[in-house]
């Protein structure tokens, strides 16, 4: 079974534990500027939205890469950067329609979400459950359940 990151912005508090966890997992230091998940704040509406790579099946970044530095991890489905192959040309950062592949000037390579090899640090660190890691084929399950809960065809008791 493959899993996907499922993000529910309604319960994100903007604490950035996910950004810290992401940078710690990949760089061994706490540094949100190196996180590949980003929390956006829409201040006027009081909304906070975590955003990261959705791991497209037909990934634009992968197809755009001229040196085949982006490969699919068969187990997780993640599109993963091979750092020793990546030449830092940044074509993938242009190709990605969602902006989720970005350049890291320290390494001279690009970086993107790799699902931490199947145990995403962001989801583990999220204190409210705004980021979870669920069955890829059933990311709508919880929303379906909520709607299901609202249906009730039993006869109403007379008031």
């Amino acid at each position: 079974m493959q899993r996907s990151l499922l993000i529910n912005p309604d319960i994100c508090t903007g604490c950035l534990q996910c950004e810290m966890a992401c940078s710690f997992e990949h760089f061994g230091m706490i540094n949100p500027s190196k996180s590949v998940i980003k929390v956006f704040e829409f201040h006027h509406d009081g909304r906070k939205v975590p955003y990261t790579c959705t791991q497209c099946a037909e990934a634009w970044c992968l197809h755009a890469c001229p040196v085949e530095a982006i490969v699919i991890n068969k187990e997780t489905g993640a599109k993963v950067i091979l750092e020793d192959v990546c030449v830092g040309c940044k074509v993938c950062t242009i190709a990605c329609p969602f902006g989720t592949v970005n350049y890291n000037h320290d390494s001279g390579k690009v970086m993107k979400c790799d699902l931490c090899g199947g145990d995403p640090a962001c989801a583990l660190a999220c204190p409210t459950g705004a980021i979870t890691y669920v069955d890829s084929d059933w990311t709508g399950l919880e929303r379906m359940r909520q709607w299901a809960a609202k249906t009730d065809s039993r006869p109403k008791a007379q008031a």
Binding site: G14, C15, L16, Q17, D45, G46, R47, P127
Partner: peptide, 19 residues
Amino acid sequence: LVTNQACFGCTIACGRISK
């Protein structure tokens, strides 16, 4: 009250966001 909000790193999130 619109929502609550956390400061950096905070897992309590007591901040009030109002309209």
